[in-house]
Design a binder for these strands. Structure first.
Length: 266
DNA sequence: AAAATCTGCAACCGCGATGCC
DNA sequence: GGGCATCGCGGTTGCAGATTT
């Protein structure tokens, strides 16, 4: 409320950075670090606002930045992570060493979005054929009510409509039915916080005990599970992936702790 | 060859979260 | 507990180079 814009002061430079500015910024951060971005430009002799300095450092000057084209593996990783996490670019970047959220965001909008959309279309087509050809194709009752959250960009991610609290916009018990680029569909459920309520709402939620990890029947009737992991982890979620005609199953676990999350295939 | 259009990317903007006084 | 400062994130913009007409 009434907060002054960070570059309100006249005389602060905007636009592309010059090599000299880069040099000054690097030299200052190497010597003093960046305990206070706001104060940094003055101390470094730069006519920039702190925000601009921070962005330049994080997106371009950091020594561990990896430049150059994205590898196929990186692209696939981004597509898969975006499928699970939505537009949480910083979370995606955290899993791609040397890549920045800005870079990933750019590459998504320029390349991968189209790629993912094309594959999605292809998969939907294949899926339709599959459904038509196999009346007895088993559909979990939850699955039939799930919606394809890629039907529009804003709905592509669980939290796309959320402005902040990651994962929290997904209503309890909601299942997101994702179709991605490897002839699979997966159902990922994201829940944060009130796990009790969620468990209650999920009819077939199994007991997480020793047998849970070996019980193959779970893939038959429970395509999506979630629970509170405890021990500092806020949650985990499992999605099952159905290759081809539903014959081959495997699972991913999405473990989330605070703003960090990790996908573990098993 | 010039103009129009497209593409890629660096940088900016606004807002919510967090921390500090 | 409230207000302010700062940080970090995601959306958007603007520009330069590439491509097409």
């Amino acid at each position: 409320m009434g907060r002054a814009p960070c570059c309100e002061k006249m005389g602060l430079k905007k636009g592309p950075w010059t090599p000299e500015e880069d040099r000054l910024l690097i030299a200052h951060i190497k010597k003093h670090g960046h305990p206070n971005w706001r104060a940094l430009p003055k101390l470094a002799g730069l006519l920039r606002c702190g925000k601009s300095c921070r962005l330049r450092w994080i997106n371009y000057l950091r020594p561990d930045i990896k430049r150059g084209n994205f590898s196929k593996e990186e692209e696939e990783t981004i597509i898969n992570l975006h499928d699970m996490l939505g537009n949480r670019w910083s979370a995606i970047a955290a899993r791609l060493p040397g890549r920045t959220d800005n870079e990933i965001k750019n590459v998504w909008h320029t390349h991968l979005k189209k790629k993912a959309a094309a594959v999605l279309k292809q998969n939907q087509k294949a899926n339709n054929n599959n459904n038509n050809n196999s009346d007895d194709h088993k559909q979990n009752s939850k699955t039939t009510t799930a919606h394809d959250h890629r039907s529009s960009e804003s709905a592509m991610s669980p939290q796309a409509s959320s402005s902040g609290d990651e994962l929290s916009s997904v209503t309890t018990g909601e299942i997101n039915n994702n179709y991605n680029n490897s002839d699979q569909y997966c159902m990922d459920k994201y829940v944060k916080g009130d796990h009790e309520q969620n468990v209650d709402s999920f009819e077939s939620f199994p007991v997480i005990d020793e047998s849970f990890w070996t019980d193959t029947s779970l893939s038959e009737n429970s395509s999506n599970l979630t629970s509170d992991f405890g021990g500092g982890l806020n949650e985990f979620a499992i999605g099952h992936h159905d290759y081809g005609g539903g014959m081959d199953f495997w699972y991913n676990i999405l473990v989330t702790s605070g703003t960090d999350s990790l996908t573990l295939p098993f």
